[in-house]
Design a protein around this nucleic acid. Structure first.
Lengths: 229, 229
DNA sequence: CTCCGAATTTTGTTGCAACAAAAATAGAAT
DNA sequence: ATTCTATTTTTGTTGCAACAAAATTCGGAG
């Protein structure tokens, strides 16, 4: 028999249709396929994705558990609108969790990691210059998560991902053309500097500033769009 | 049409059998009803809780998503064993997240909150003195979460709960009689002091110390029990 | 035009059977 | 005894229909 002895970190589990549907829906959500407030139904997802109702329901349940979708009524799930209070809450959590991930991830980072992240940064710049904001957003995520993944903390990484998912849906709708401001760029450069200096605290600080700057942008955009009806 | 305007914070959604099964299983898990490594099957849960297979499956999926149960094979879910690495990871996350919750929760805390938490502390002391360790553990959780809940951050609270759930199952098995050491008591007193002084930072520090002390206990117990096969 | 209530449609949930795949078991060979 | 293999049992997944309840629509009254 396969004795697994101690920790089983490997990702077991077969990928069923339910997981596939979850990934598909998640992708659509972060890409901003549905506007906030849009109603998501089991049968609609089932038909749209081409699966049965059971996998679709599984995917919905999981997304709801992660708060990437919310109930607007006893039987109605919609893609959520981000309130100022929720944005603040997510930001506070991101600051702690991503600060931790950045710090721990920076410890073992080497030249290869720096090169990879510089490549992501180039993609961000290029995408931004050509107006491909969705791509810029995607590369931005890869930039952040490359360093987070280095921390080797799967639970932490999964939690951060749900936070990004939570803001991602509303983000796309709110900020279609101003995806990443110039703030982001200099913060990313600061993070790369910290990586070169092998200074985890510097990396952590840069990431935290990045999150804070993004927060200010988002908050302002949110205030302007929904000040009062 | 019902215009929901802005933020819908109210907890909508009807409680279905699936949610009931989830709560039941979660309760059993934190109470240590199953030893780590115990295999959990859909049909067994269905029969044990008296529900159909669908609610049981929903509950299992949710618990697995929260990492309160893990896959040991492609089709086998078991209650997880806590490895040293996982304990460290959870502790790091708890420090950040519960530190945040304690700080924010302490801001608005008043005399009523202090009285309530002192009552919880008394229950802890009494339960400990009478050897009712499971009760002590429960009151300990209520003590912590009373202040966390005051922060009014639902997502943060939910995340912290999953972390407690993650350690709870293994905790009960690992530490049946030494649930809360004398460390905990003085840390709780320090937290109450901070509350009286209306000093959120003091409360935060006390909670963080509490988490750190608990971590040391757990880690030692874990090392002793599973040094090598 | 607005508002309210009944009729109708939509929708989530649940149980169940079939199926494929994994896990447990039994047995045989070394 | 042990290890490997074949057989049997267990188990998660999936689709589907029935049901109850919620959401929507529609129509009429004010």
């Amino acid at each position: 028999m396969e004795e697994v002895d101690g920790l089983v970190s490997g990702s077991n589990k077969v990928m069923g249709l339910g997981d596939r549907a979850y990934e598909d829906l998640k992708e659509k959500l972060v890409r901003g396929a549905y506007p906030p407030g849009h109603k998501i139904t089991v049968r609609a997802v089932a038909e749209e994705l081409g699966y049965g109702t059971t996998p679709a329901r599984d995917a919905l349940n999981r997304l709801v558990a992660e708060r990437a979708l919310v109930f607007s009524g006893p039987k109605t799930v919609v893609v959520p609108t981000l309130s100022l209070a929720e944005l603040y809450e997510v930001t506070q959590m991101r600051l702690r969790l991503e600060g931790l991930a950045a710090e721990k991830g920076a410890i073992g980072a080497g030249a290869a990691d720096i090169a990879r992240m510089e490549a992501f940064q180039s993609e961000i710049d290029a995408a931004l210059a050509e107006g491909r904001y969705a791509d810029a957003l995607w590369s931005n995520k890869e930039f952040h998560f490359h360093i987070y993944a280095r921390a080797n903390m799967p639970m932490l990484l999964a939690t951060i991902e749900t936070l990004w998912l939570r803001v991602g849906a509303a983000f796309n709708d709110l900020y279609p053309e101003f995806a990443i401001s110039k703030y982001g760029i200099q913060n990313h450069r600061a993070a790369l500097e910290g990586l070169r200096h092998k200074d985890p605290q510097e990396v952590k600080a840069a990431i935290e500033t990045d999150i804070r700057d993004g927060y200010r942008c988002l908050r302002q955009a949110l205030s302007e769009r929904a000040p009062k009806k």
